[in-house]
């Protein structure tokens, strides 16, 4: 192919292209370094060294502040608010929130997806269209009534109330798994069916083990999406006890102490919130990158 032949030749156009690409990568990645550099700095020194590439007055105080390891007076001395902030609690809530919704949504959605892809029943396509149609409904529109529903159930500021709308399914998960099942070879299933296995057993013994790869991809995508969710947890889980990291970050930011924000503390908190996703990306980057073409265009 022509691209391979031109790949060896270095043309001016190619140099410009590579520079543009390098620039885009720098803009995408360098801000993360800046967050780290600021988190390791001391607030008081930031203004005087606003352009230094290394941490200004290297110090781990910001991280101690974020995890509530500094006494209020220490925190205030370093430019913190001294207000109670406990990221361990938020971290745990985020893990629970993203973990429970992911487990439930992936499992239940794949069950439903199987019924849409493989079973034959009256009204199947209409029901599927109904599921797919929910993608068109903006989140804010259902969030208000869902808030009232959770409130009526007495589940405000509980993990149960937070996970309810997502734990049964997400339209995307159903769509994603249905697509996989449609392309999945029927032969093994049919052989098992002839041996007298019912759909339930076929699903758990044959289909599910063979769907490990797409299930893992789906779980990663769902987990990251839920981890980053802000609006719904803000509505139903705003209390200190049920806050997730994103909500905690917003609260941290709004506690602007002593006039100027606690920048190093805020960046340390930001980094702590980002680390789990960064780890997932480090481990499964290729899987995630390769999934993009799929969910977008197929």
């Amino acid at each position: 192919m022509s691209t391979q032949r031109t790949a060896r030749r270095i043309t001016p156009g190619k140099v410009v292209a590579l520079i543009c690409l390098a620039l885009a990568i720098a803009v995408s990645v360098l801000p993360f370094y800046w967050v780290l550099r600021t988190a390791l700095s001391t607030n008081g020194s930031l203004a005087a060294n606003s352009a230094s590439l290394l941490p200004a007055d290297f110090n781990l105080g910001a991280f101690q502040r974020v995890f509530g390891l500094q006494s209020p007076s220490e925190a205030i001395a370093e430019g913190g608010s001294g207000g109670s902030i406990n990221f361990w609690g938020y971290l745990l809530n985020s893990v629970l929130y993203a973990g429970i919704t992911t487990a439930g949504a992936v499992f239940f959605s794949s069950l439903a997806a199987y019924a849409f892809a493989r079973l034959h029943w009256k009204g199947r396509d209409k029901v599927f269209a109904l599921f797919l149609g929910t993608v068109l409904v903006p989140g804010i529109f259902t969030a208000l009534p869902n808030f009232l529903f959770v409130k009526n159930l007495g589940l405000l500021n509980t993990m149960a109330g937070m996970v309810l709308p997502y734990v049964f399914m997400t339209p995307f998960a159903i769509f994603f798994m249905r697509q996989f099942f449609l392309n999945f070879s029927r032969e093994v299933e049919e052989a098992a069916m002839l041996d007298g296995a019912d759909h339930w057993r076929i699903y758990f013994r044959i289909v599910l083990p063979n769907a490990a790869a797409p299930l893992a991809t789906l779980a990663l995508l769902t987990f990251m999406g839920q981890w980053n969710d802000y609006f719904w947890p803000l509505l139903v889980g705003g209390d200190e006890s049920s806050r997730v990291l994103t909500v905690g970050l917003g609260v941290f930011k709004s506690q602007s102490p002593q006039g100027a924000p606690d920048w190093s503390g805020l960046m340390a908190a930001t980094l702590v919130s980002a680390i789990p996703v960064l780890i997932i990306f480090g481990l499964f980057g290729k899987k995630i990158v390769n999934s993009i073409g799929f969910n977008g265009t197929k």
Binding site: W121, F131, T134, T142, P145, F168
Partner: peptide
């Protein structure tokens, strides 16, 4: 019948958190 079992959880989610709220 078996399809209903398969889609029941997702259906609960659809009805209570999408259709009724809409």
């Amino acid at each position: 019948k078996i399809a209903l079992v398969f889609i029941l959880p997702a259906l609960i989610g659809l009805v209570f958190f999408y259709l009724v709220p809409t």
